[in-house]
Design a protein around this nucleic acid. Sequence first.
DNA 1: ATCATTTGTAAGTATTTGCTCACAAAAATA
DNA 2: TATTTTTGTGAGCAAATACTTACAAATGAT
Lengths: 202, 202
Amino acid sequence: MSKYLQMIRKSTDLRQEEIKKAVLSIIHRDGLKNLSTKNLAREVGISEGAIFRHFNTKRDIIMSIMDDVIEDLIENLRKISLEDIPPPERLFKYLCNTVTYLLENQGITILLFSEASYENDAEMLEKLNYIFNNQKQLAGKIISDGIAFGTWDESVSVVDLSSLYMGIPITLNIELILNRENFQQENFCKRMFEFILKILKK
Amino acid sequence: MSKYLQMIRKSTDLRQEEIKKAVLSIIHRDGLKNLSTKNLAREVGISEGAIFRHFNTKRDIIMSIMDDVIEDLIENLRKISLEDIPPPERLFKYLCNTVTYLLENQGITILLFSEASYENDAEMLEKLNYIFNNQKQLAGKIISDGIAFGTWDESVSVVDLSSLYMGIPITLNIELILNRENFQQENFCKRMFEFILKILKK
DNA sequence: ATCATTTGTAAGTATTTGCTCACAAAAATA
DNA sequence: TATTTTTGTGAGCAAATACTTACAAATGAT
């Protein structure tokens, strides 16, 4: 007679995706503290041992999610920054894509900002750094293009404006954590973009 | 013969301050993960039991630090927002005071942004909300004053600009965690203030 | 000087954590 | 069909965590 009844098997590839999704669900719903491997296993619907069949360590799961962000968000933004459309239009698209991604992947926000500083893990911080600095520098590139193009005020400091720009997605993140219901997220990117445009106006 | 040698005693008031300082030191130096009561006791130089003589729970320590932020930072900003000086000058002072506070209390940054979302603790989130929204609304008040005064463009949305404004201290926080050495923090508030001014210009 | 109060210690506690292991069973391959 | 490989289970592990407790010693009031 069988010892375990109705065991559902899936490939490691599929399970890895399920596990990563479950991580974000737990963080978004219950907070980072509840992201134990036990809870994670329950969320996925497998045993705790199975989790470690598909990932060597819990840390590997987090790192893999960070790699996803790099692949999905950053590489998309890189493409946009290189598109052959006028800088104003390009910067707008760039900002709105960022905002959309953050709205669609809300668990990631907490994961990125909390986990790295929580763990104080050098490799994690490096990945986070990569994500942050690429977002910033690619935005800076578009701004530089617009200035070189003659569209925008050349006296504006690209570095400084990139810093201010980065405040937009980050504030969005914070507002989503703190004011999730009150926050007016419609046209958020448009409204913020108008401000950036005004700064860049000759 | 004495069982313990050279026991240094201090009042609960003093110890509470020492403990709270130690919390920020540990977070700043080793990350939130290393903020165990055991490490905390070692950092202060007392036994773990003594920690619980001065605070009932570890959570109480964090809450008390958050109350300090409200008392030290927010109440100071409130006063500035009510000062009888021209809005541009007032907003500049407001921003620079915020920046200075954040630079001088770097452990607090991580504590505020990570701990609350880590614990997913309603009361903690409420305090964080209070800190965030007051900073934002008081800045908004100064902007409104300037518009009412006739100095600034009345077509600017105060709510939206306050959101953008909040990006400044928050980005500063992130940069301090990620780029601590490279980050150019001199005149940071001035450079950011110039951007806000340009947006507000008629 | 006596004694209650306060502040300290050291050695516990129960619980949770990330992770391992021996083995069961489904799926792929021969 | 027979065998190997992959995916699963559930019990259990050492280490860490927040917190407690019994008792020691310093301090302040009488």
